[in-house]
Amino acid sequence: MTDQTDEEYREAPSDRTHVKRYHWLARYDQETVKAILDATPLAHVGCMMNGVPFVTPTFFWREGDRVYWHGSSAGRMFHALEHQDICFTVSMLDGLVIARSAYNFNCNFRSVMLLGRAELIKDEDEKAEKLRNFVNGLIPGEWERLRPVYPKEIKATAIASMSIAEASCKVRTGPPIDDDEDYTHPSWAGVIPIRYQVLPPEPDPRNLPDVSMPEDVLKFRLG
């Protein structure tokens, strides 16, 4: 457990983000929310479509107090988003926690769950601006190096945004927590750390001979 108090635990932004299970892992502050969101560009969006729950993986980015994601304007998700509250989640696996009993096996992780209503960006100029922010957020200056976007491509792209105000996080770190009597059991316990790794870029074999890789591509890092 951590030294988080019950008073801090109750400071959830809403009843539905109030963590009850393993509540000592809960965080509600915006600093933690933003740090987890910024650690990876991959999220999962959950919503109901035709009475069936769907969870869709998607690339996303954060601008201030909102998250943004894009997809096809013809996609079912973007037709359903504005008519319901949705669940937007991001998670990072940091380690396998090996305990002295199967019951106490665990993992070290960071996760955030956002709840609320998404908004679609419909202005074509604003969509182009947000896409530019997305691309340049991954590789600085890349948008300006690319072939200029066609109006039909902007029209075919849907972009949604959502506030990060209604959020809850869970963060677990550290060694296993076993039952007191199990610490005398002769079984190895500990943590296997897990890290995401960015490898050297692999060029497209159809690159033009005189095209060199921008230095910003080499500088890409998660988070």
Results as ranks from 00 to 15, higher is better:
residue 155 K to A: 15
residue 155 K to F: 00
residue 156 A to S: 13
residue 156 A to Q: 10
residue 156 A to L: 09
residue 156 A to K: 08
residue 156 A to F: 05
residue 156 A to C: 08
residue 157 T to W: 14
residue 158 A to G: 15
residue 158 A to R: 06
residue 158 A to E: 14
residue 158 A to S: 15
residue 158 A to N: 14
residue 158 A to H: 09
residue 159 I to A: 03
residue 159 I to T: 04
residue 159 I to S: 06
residue 160 A to V: 04
residue 160 A to E: 02
residue 161 S to N: 13
residue 161 S to T: 14
residue 161 S to Y: 09
residue 162 M to L: 15
residue 162 M to N: 10
residue 162 M to W: 07
residue 162 M to Q: 12
residue 162 M to T: 09
residue 163 S to M: 12
residue 164 I to S: 07
residue 164 I to V: 13
residue 164 I to T: 14
residue 165 A to D: 10
residue 165 A to H: 12
residue 165 A to E: 11
residue 166 E to V: 03
residue 166 E to C: 05
residue 166 E to I: 04
residue 166 E to S: 06
residue 166 E to R: 07
residue 167 A to D: 00
residue 167 A to K: 03
residue 168 S to R: 10
residue 168 S to Y: 03
residue 168 S to F: 06
residue 168 S to H: 05
residue 169 C to T: 01
residue 169 C to K: 04
residue 169 C to Y: 04
residue 170 K to I: 00
residue 171 V to M: 11
residue 172 R to Q: 07
residue 172 R to T: 13
residue 173 T to L: 15
residue 173 T to N: 15
residue 173 T to C: 15
residue 174 G to F: 11
residue 175 P to E: 06
residue 175 P to W: 10
residue 175 P to N: 07
residue 176 P to C: 13
residue 176 P to L: 10
residue 177 I to L: 01
residue 177 I to N: 07
residue 177 I to W: 02
residue 178 D to R: 09
residue 178 D to E: 12
residue 179 D to T: 09
residue 179 D to L: 14
residue 179 D to P: 07
residue 180 D to A: 15
residue 180 D to C: 10
residue 181 E to A: 15
residue 181 E to D: 14
residue 181 E to F: 08
residue 182 D to I: 02
residue 183 Y to L: 14
residue 183 Y to P: 13
residue 183 Y to N: 15
residue 183 Y to D: 14
residue 183 Y to W: 14
residue 184 T to P: 13
residue 184 T to K: 11
residue 184 T to M: 00
residue 185 H to D: 02
residue 185 H to M: 04
residue 186 P to S: 11
residue 186 P to H: 10
residue 187 S to M: 11
residue 187 S to E: 13
residue 187 S to A: 12
residue 188 W to E: 09
residue 189 A to H: 11
residue 189 A to I: 08
residue 190 G to V: 03
residue 191 V to Y: 14
residue 191 V to C: 14
residue 192 I to S: 00
residue 192 I to G: 00
residue 193 P to L: 00
residue 193 P to Y: 00
residue 194 I to G: 05
residue 194 I to W: 00
residue 194 I to E: 00
residue 194 I to A: 02
residue 195 R to F: 09
residue 195 R to S: 13
residue 195 R to H: 14
residue 197 Q to L: 15
residue 198 V to K: 12
residue 198 V to S: 07
residue 199 L to Q: 11
residue 199 L to R: 10
residue 199 L to S: 04
residue 199 L to D: 04
residue 200 P to K: 09
residue 200 P to F: 02
residue 201 P to K: 01
residue 201 P to Y: 02
residue 202 E to I: 00
residue 202 E to W: 01
residue 202 E to Y: 04
residue 202 E to L: 03
residue 202 E to K: 02
residue 203 P to W: 07
residue 204 D to Q: 03
residue 204 D to H: 01
residue 204 D to W: 01
residue 204 D to F: 03
residue 205 P to K: 12
residue 205 P to G: 15
residue 205 P to M: 12
residue 206 R to D: 03
residue 206 R to I: 01
residue 207 N to S: 06
residue 208 L to G: 06
residue 209 P to N: 02
residue 210 D to R: 01
residue 211 V to P: 03
residue 211 V to R: 03
residue 212 S to F: 04
residue 212 S to N: 02
residue 213 M to F: 02
residue 213 M to V: 04
residue 214 P to Y: 03
residue 214 P to L: 03
residue 214 P to E: 02
residue 214 P to T: 02
residue 214 P to C: 05
residue 215 E to P: 02
residue 216 D to L: 04
residue 216 D to Y: 01
residue 217 V to Q: 08
residue 217 V to K: 03
residue 217 V to C: 05
